[in-house]
Amino acid sequence: MNRWPQLDYLGWRETCSALQLYLQIAGKYRLAHTPWLNHSWNATFYVTPNGLASSPIPDGPGIEILFDLREHRVVGTCGNGLRKSIDLGPMTVAKFHASFVQLISELGGTPNFNGLPNEVPNPIPFVEDDRDRPYDRDAVQRFHQALMAVDKVFNRFRTSFLGKSSPVHLFWGSFDLALTRFSGRRAPLHPGGIPALPDDVAQEAYDREVSSAGFWPGGGGIDYPAFYAYAYPAPGGYRSASVQPEATFWHDGLSEYVLPYDAVQSAADPDEALMAFLVTTYEVAADLGGWDRDLLECAPGLPRKVRSVARSEH
């Protein structure tokens, strides 16, 4: 099977929307019980060979949530050995919410969390969302396969940076797999105004200069899967800079560089096409923004090879 599958957002967008809301329910539970970590890193999910995992949540005996996108179920495990699951399939958001609350209760946790979606148009409280939602198993599996391929390249890119860097993680609000590098300097106060997201959350997320890249399955202003890159604050000349690969363009509505997923999937070497996007969009942000690249960067990491360290002369 091609490691970079074809993705048709319009063909599975209703399933995609439902999956995002299910992840928000689990993510909000995690957020309610996990101490805040800079830039909301305490709320995210991580790509695994089976799907998307929360990492341990400090509630009750300790609980971890896995969205198993191969077996199509949500699995909860806890520190006392219990394991409970919910099947993923056609249902309402309200039904999933009720099942998830029951799952957490049976694992010995406290299922108290905010009940309103974030970063989606016209948010409906989870318990009131009674619209029937489809579930396209094949599309979900292709999405997971794509996440695995993207995660591998993002993590390789992460190895060439010595400064502060986020993990490669999935934000359930905007439903994007993201990776962020930091210059080490403070940024101007973010104006906020992100739909259905508190301004203080956005301002805390962007209180330092960043160069960020990520992957969307679609939605949020585009009707196709794509990679994005942006800088905050964007330095002068950023939007008109030369970046790679050739299919990359500046999206005025999003104020970000966008590279359609299809251009990567169909490339002779998809991994290197995506790497070119990550490297060139970062370099433009760092050069135009005056980042100390000599201090912040290193050679890409290799298995079983310790990073070489320059020795000072005496």
Results as ranks from 00 to 15, higher is better:
residue 158 R to K: 15
residue 222 I to L: 15
residue 26 A to V: 13
residue 241 A to C: 11
residue 260 P to V: 08
residue 153 V to T: 15
residue 164 K to R: 09
residue 151 D to T: 01
residue 289 G to I: 11
residue 56 P to R: 04
residue 7 L to C: 09
residue 47 V to T: 07
residue 23 L to N: 04
residue 302 L to H: 08
residue 106 E to A: 14
residue 191 P to Y: 07
residue 60 G to Q: 01
residue 215 F to R: 00
residue 67 F to H: 03
residue 198 P to K: 00
residue 213 A to M: 14
residue 220 G to H: 07
residue 116 L to T: 12
residue 260 P to H: 08
residue 267 A to P: 01
residue 309 V to I: 13
residue 256 E to F: 09
residue 262 D to T: 13
residue 283 E to Y: 13
residue 124 I to D: 00
residue 15 T to Q: 13
residue 145 Q to T: 14
residue 314 H to G: 12
residue 105 S to T: 15
residue 228 Y to T: 02
residue 65 I to S: 00
residue 5 P to L: 10
residue 282 Y to V: 00
residue 313 E to F: 06
residue 298 C to E: 03
residue 173 G to D: 01
residue 285 A to E: 07
residue 202 A to W: 15
residue 287 D to V: 15
residue 91 M to W: 05
residue 45 F to H: 11
residue 233 P to T: 14
residue 97 H to W: 11
residue 139 A to Y: 11
residue 162 L to H: 06
residue 256 E to Y: 06
residue 251 H to K: 03
residue 61 P to N: 05
residue 177 L to G: 05
residue 98 A to L: 10
residue 40 S to G: 05
residue 106 E to I: 01
residue 230 Y to K: 00
residue 84 K to A: 12
residue 179 L to H: 15
residue 99 S to N: 13
residue 225 P to T: 00
residue 215 F to N: 03
residue 133 R to E: 12
residue 228 Y to A: 12
residue 194 I to N: 06
residue 52 L to Q: 06
residue 208 R to M: 12
residue 158 R to W: 13
residue 40 S to T: 09
residue 259 L to G: 14
residue 37 L to K: 07
residue 153 V to H: 01
residue 269 D to H: 06
residue 297 E to L: 15
residue 47 V to F: 09
residue 72 H to S: 07
residue 66 L to E: 03
residue 48 T to F: 11
residue 195 P to T: 03
residue 269 D to G: 02
residue 279 V to I: 07
residue 156 R to F: 14
residue 46 Y to F: 14
residue 28 K to R: 12
residue 232 Y to C: 09
residue 233 P to M: 05
residue 57 I to Q: 01
residue 290 G to Y: 15
residue 26 A to H: 04
residue 18 A to T: 03
residue 118 N to G: 03
residue 154 F to N: 04
residue 299 A to Q: 10
residue 182 F to N: 06
residue 2 N to T: 13
residue 17 S to P: 00
residue 98 A to C: 04
residue 302 L to Q: 11
residue 270 P to H: 05
residue 292 D to M: 07
residue 314 H to E: 13
residue 292 D to A: 07
residue 125 P to Q: 04
residue 195 P to Q: 07
residue 25 I to V: 14
residue 240 S to M: 10
residue 44 T to K: 09
residue 45 F to M: 13
residue 44 T to M: 12
residue 243 V to S: 02
residue 170 L to R: 02
residue 54 S to R: 03
residue 5 P to R: 08
residue 153 V to W: 01
residue 260 P to N: 08
residue 79 G to A: 06
residue 36 W to S: 09
residue 243 V to N: 02
residue 266 S to K: 12
residue 63 I to C: 06
residue 284 V to E: 01
residue 263 A to L: 03
residue 30 R to T: 06
residue 61 P to W: 07
residue 149 A to K: 02
residue 73 R to F: 09
residue 195 P to W: 09
residue 9 Y to I: 02
residue 252 D to M: 10
residue 235 P to H: 12
residue 53 A to I: 14
residue 139 A to L: 14
residue 203 Q to L: 08
residue 183 S to H: 11
residue 291 W to L: 11
residue 140 V to W: 02
residue 211 S to K: 06
residue 185 R to E: 15
residue 88 L to P: 12
residue 131 R to S: 13
residue 62 G to Y: 04
residue 162 L to S: 13
residue 145 Q to L: 13
residue 137 R to L: 13
residue 215 F to S: 07
residue 175 F to G: 01
residue 54 S to F: 13
residue 190 H to D: 15
residue 222 I to S: 05
residue 169 H to T: 08
residue 250 W to C: 05
residue 147 L to G: 08
residue 167 P to G: 03
residue 223 D to Y: 06
